[in-house]
Write a protein that binds this DNA or RNA. Structure first.
Lengths: 220, 220
DNA sequence: CCACCGTCGTGAAATTTTCCCGGCAGCGGC
DNA sequence: GCCGCTGCCGGGAAAATTTCACGACGGTGG
């Protein structure tokens, strides 16, 4: 193993968090932060420029989100190592991140040692998942709550996304060139497949599963 | 003015963020971090113990949320200075925080200088609002979007909260000792008053206004 | 070829949403 | 007291919707 420092890039839209990373990683010998980005596109640019050994990335960011950023980085460099470090204690997000090519998923509530361990694991090629997410994953399995994306057909998922984003049944019908009646049928079928009774439950489920994110909704 | 260091307590459930605060504040002479808490009740306990000059507090925390924590701190010490530092770029939250007794509201996306300035302002008794929230406030005024809590009567608000939390109309009716018919009428009236057409829009509005928070929903 | 699945739509029944209504209680003004 | 106003509670009926059963069509795979 080389004894030069391993290089790290930080990606987080909150300056205070990046400061925190630095403070925590500085204590660790053999690590060196070589770049910082505050959003996905900047991360992409800086990765190509500096080619760090590891990227530590948040998920919730302006512009392209973290998941999409991971995907693009891995497309550019198939061997990029990306450790997700996020506030979302949510198994669905973790699954999405790993599928997109992340090497690990650690929540921000974890103690500093967990992050350091995960960094080491990721650098040595292991996949690191923080314990709370392991627990989450186990829970959602036990609850039999499969991912909505798997239960629904492509068409149904499309309608679901529009239901959550757009407004009325009629608007969706027009956008998708369907009869309003069909949209209503789909809407009903979706709720049935997902096992929810009301639209409100539907939104909550979508939030949990990361189909809808907070930024899509309220927070302008 | 005394030339002893001003004391600060940090409240945030993410260890990495607390590290970030420290790193940013350390560069500033005359400030000293004397306590750290990771949730509302711990903050309350430590405040009584250490009596800091200023509290820097996040809003989204496990257990009692930040707003409630502010309220309790101010109840214990009417002159407590509390600076909210949060990821929520949301005017409704800012209004709630200030009403609860906060001395300022700064978002985590702000550059470090903004935090430092806000700390100084808060220490000298001024109320500091970060520019993006000012802008948000102006926007929501222009949009004529008044707070839901002001538009609705107490009863209506009660039903709204239950609609967002509970399940069916019938369950709410029973919990509130009302006829299902009345709940349905209220439900309709609420949507009318709030100017939304569908339940999904209702949830989104509630999220924006901070009536519902993410922790109430999905993220278990 | 045939069975199966996803897609799209119709029709009709069941349910919900909406709108309009009246009664009742509290509250301030005259 | 009396009046007007507002909030609260529900009934009734029309309108819209959700739900369910059903059929058609194209693709896919055994």
């Amino acid at each position: 193993m080389s004894n030069t420092a391993r290089t790290i890039m930080l990606v987080d839209d909150h300056a205070v968090v990046r400061e925190g990373y630095r403070a925590m990683l500085q204590k660790q010998p053999g690590l060196s932060v070589v770049a910082e980005a505050s959003d996905g596109v900047e991360a992409y640019r800086l990765y190509k420029e500096t080619g760090p050994d590891l990227v530590i990335m948040d998920l919730s960011m302006p512009g392209i989100g973290g998941i999409e950023a991971i995907r693009r980085l891995r497309q550019w460099d198939k061997r990029a190592k990306i450790l997700v470090f996020t506030m979302h204690q949510n198994a669905a997000f973790a699954v999405q991140a790993i599928r997109a090519g992340a090497s690990g998923y650690v929540t921000k509530t974890s103690p500093p040692e967990t992050l350091v361990h995960a960094v080491m694991d990721a650098l040595s090629g292991k996949i690191a998942i923080s314990p709370d997410i392991d627990h989450e994953l186990a829970l959602s399995h036990l609850a039999g709550e499969s991912a909505a994306a798997d239960l629904l057909t492509a068409r149904e998922f499309e309608v679901l996304r529009m239901l959550l984003a757009e407004k009325t049944t009629d608007e969706i019908a027009e956008a998708l060139h369907l009869s309003p009646k069909t949209v209503a049928n789909l809407h009903s079928l979706i709720k049935d497949k997902l096992g929810v009774g009301t639209d409100i439950e539907l939104v909550r489920l979508a939030l949990r599963q990361g189909i809808l994110t907070q930024v899509d909704l309220g927070e302008r």
